[in-house]
Every structure is written in structure tokens, then in C-alpha cells.
Computed example of a mutant assay.
Amino acid sequence: MRSRLLPRDVLRTGAAGLRARPGRMALAALGIAIGIAAMVCVVGVTASSTENLNRRLAVLGTNLLTVAPGASMDGAPTHLPPEAPMMIAGIPAVTAVTATGTVTASAYRSDLIPPIQTGSLAVLAARPDLPDTLRTTLARGAFLNAATARFPVTVLGSAAAVRLNVVAPGEQVWLGGHWFTVTGILTPTPLAPELDSAALIGWDVAERLLRFDGHPTTVYVRTYDATVESVRAILAGTADPETPDEVQVSRPSDALIAKRAAGDTLTALLLSLGAVALLVGGVGVANTMIVSVLERRSEIGLRRSLGATRRHIRLQFLAESLTLSGAGGLAGVLFGAALASAYALHEGWPVVIPLWAAGTGLAAAMLIGGVAGGYPAWRAARVSPTEALR
């Protein structure tokens, strides 16, 4: 009668071999766990970051375009016409337009600071409709309006407020030789990062007190999602009909998408490193199983003498290898998911752990276990009973 080994018997004998040497087996499983944890963590962090970016783009919109002056044929800087925002607003598909203009002035916390220490802060003339067009909000205070824009008041970008040590509206800063009262502080503006390190003042007061020439340096344009490309094609000619080649038109959301693409490249590199760690863990499992075969030759010989076939011996050691790798893979998935979740929560991102990443991690661990345990299992099955018991 042919001897049979039931699946539960295979699992029981495989688990028995692991329990007999818990310390060595735990260290071997640790190598698998580290590789799987690295891969799951990288995928989880990337997925969480991507979801956060998608949500930000959904709120900010990808239908924002910016118009700025370029350079002439001889490389000299150019200017947008003062009427550029008004002409762009006449495009039927445009839903909102605002502009800022660079003012030749520096921002200081006090009039006692030497002029050479500018702090890299810009002073920009702005229109009251800027927050609505850019969909930005204020962390504190209020933005410029039709009344306050005529007086020496300013709204600071998030980074400018930190550098000037302004924590609340009502404080004063020194702009271009005049005291300006802070009425508000903006939240970070991802689609217009130049505003974060700027002090925004009214268009009229900039012309009256700081000799602003009235030329916009950046025009922000909102349009419908379906008409972004068509509007983009005619913006240069609309903003400056005489010299459209000297006008630059860009889409700020492209910078965020490019940032995500750069992050994808880094993710691929980190996944490769995780794969290397997983391969090293597989080598560790193979080494552990080979040593186990050498140490258990008498056990193998005894089982063969009691009727176990070569197939039974192969299944026993293959089960040990798969169980070892499976345990390491499961621990790696759980640890990697925990690390990715902790990092996402720390950054304020939504936690996203793709199920396919966990499934792929376990499958990779089992595959490594099968490959790593194949040779030791075959070697164990080749042991002769008489030689093993001698």
C-alpha cells in the first residue's frame, strides 16, 4: 500500500521543525520581513502622497494658468501692458482674472534693519480678487478690499510672516520706507508659491507711495477644465497683441504633477532596494534550511526507515521553508503598513495602503521561500537512510 502524507501532516511536521530552532528561524524570517516591510512601506507612502496631491489638485484645480513677461529677441526684459488683465477677462471661457506686480521695495520688520538685509522677501501689488481666483485662504485676519487697498496696509504670505516674526494682524512692518499695518496672513499657496514669501499691498497705494509703474508681472487666469488648452493657446496674443512672442504662459499644476513624477522615480529606486533586501533574506532562508538539513540527518534517516518516501521528506522541508517565509512576509506586511500609516499621519496625508501591495508582498515572500527551500528539500530527500543512521 502506498504511503500518503496528508496536507495537515505536512504543515504539522514543517511547523515542528521551526519550533525546534526558534531563534535561528526568527533571524531568518527577519530578513524576509525587512524586505517586505520596505516594499510595502514605500508603496504605502507613495500611494498616500499621491492621494494627498490628488485631493489638493481637486481643491485648487488644474484650470489655473499664469501669464508673465518673457524676454525680447536681444534678451532684454519685457513688460506686460497694464491693460493685460482686462483684455484677458474678455475671453469668453475665462471665469476669473487677477494680477500681481513687483514693487521695487524691500520688506523689514523695523526701520532700524540695514537695507542690505532684505531677507529675500518681495513686495507685490495685488488686487482684492486674488484669493478667489487662486482659491487660497487666510490663516488669520482679512485680505485687501476696495477700501483698505487704498491705504498702507499689507497681507503677508505664510513664509514672509515667519521671517518678519509677525504672528497676528495689527502689527506693523517697514515696506519701501513706509510703515504698513498687517491685516492678514495667507495660508501656503501651492499653485502660486511666490506669494508665500511676499508682502501684498494694494495696487493704488503701491503706485502712490512706492512708485509702482502699474505693469503686472504675473496674471492669474481661471478657466473651465474643458477649455484650458484652447485658452492657453490664445493667452499670449490676448495679453500683449503687439509682441505675443515675448509672453510666457504656464500651468502651475504641471509643477505639482512633475513633482509627483519625480517622486515615482524615487519610489522605483526604493522598491529596487527593497527587492535587494528581499533577495538577501531569501539567501538567509536558504542557508538556514541547508544547515537544518545537515543537522537533522539522523531524523531524516529515521523517518525514511519508518516508511517516509523522498517525496515526504521534500514536502516536509519545503513546508518549513514556506512557513518560515510566510511568517516573515506577514510580519513584514504588517510592519510596513504600520510605518507607512504613521508617516502619512505625521505629514497630514490620507492613509492609503493598497491591497495589492500587501498581496504582492505575501506572494513574493512565499515565492522566495519556495525558491530558497527547493534545493535544501531536494538535498534532504537524497539522504540515504543507512548513511544517515550510521
Rank of each mutant, 00 (worst) to 15 (best):
H312G: 14
E347G: 02
L306D: 03
I290T: 15
L273F: 14
L324D: 05
L279G: 11
W356H: 12
T267M: 10
G284Y: 02
P350T: 06
G301D: 01
L266H: 10
A327M: 14
I313N: 00
F317T: 10
F335Y: 04
R311D: 13
A340H: 05
L334G: 11
I313V: 15
G274Q: 07
L294Q: 13
V351Q: 08
A277W: 01
L355N: 04
D264G: 13
G332K: 10
A358F: 00
A275M: 10
E295R: 05
L330A: 14
T265R: 12
A337I: 03
G329H: 04
L330K: 02
V293M: 09
R310W: 03
V293K: 13
V333T: 10
G361D: 06
R304G: 07
R304T: 07
L270Y: 10
L271K: 06
L278D: 01
T323F: 11
I353M: 08
A286T: 05
V283P: 01
P354Q: 05
G348C: 01
A337L: 03
L278E: 01
A308I: 10
R304C: 06
L279E: 00
R314L: 15
G301N: 02
L362D: 08
T360A: 15
R303A: 09
T323A: 13
Q316D: 09
L270F: 15
T267R: 14
G328E: 05
V285R: 02
L306P: 00
L294G: 11
V276I: 13
L345F: 12
V291M: 14
A338L: 14
T288Q: 04
S321L: 08
G326D: 06
F335C: 13
P350N: 06
G332T: 07
P354L: 03
S305K: 14
S292C: 08
L318M: 13
A277F: 07
A338I: 12
S325C: 13
R311N: 12
A286E: 09
V276R: 00
L345Q: 10
L302C: 02
L318I: 12
L334W: 04
I290F: 14
R303L: 15
V333K: 00
L302G: 01
T360S: 15
G274H: 03
T323K: 10
L345N: 05
L330R: 02
I300L: 01
L302R: 01
S272I: 12
A286L: 12
F335W: 06
G361V: 07
M289I: 06
E347W: 11
V293S: 07
A275S: 12
L279M: 11
G361E: 04
T360I: 13
R314Q: 15
R297S: 09
I300V: 09
I290W: 12
L362V: 12
V276C: 05
L266F: 14
A327R: 00
R314V: 15
L322G: 02
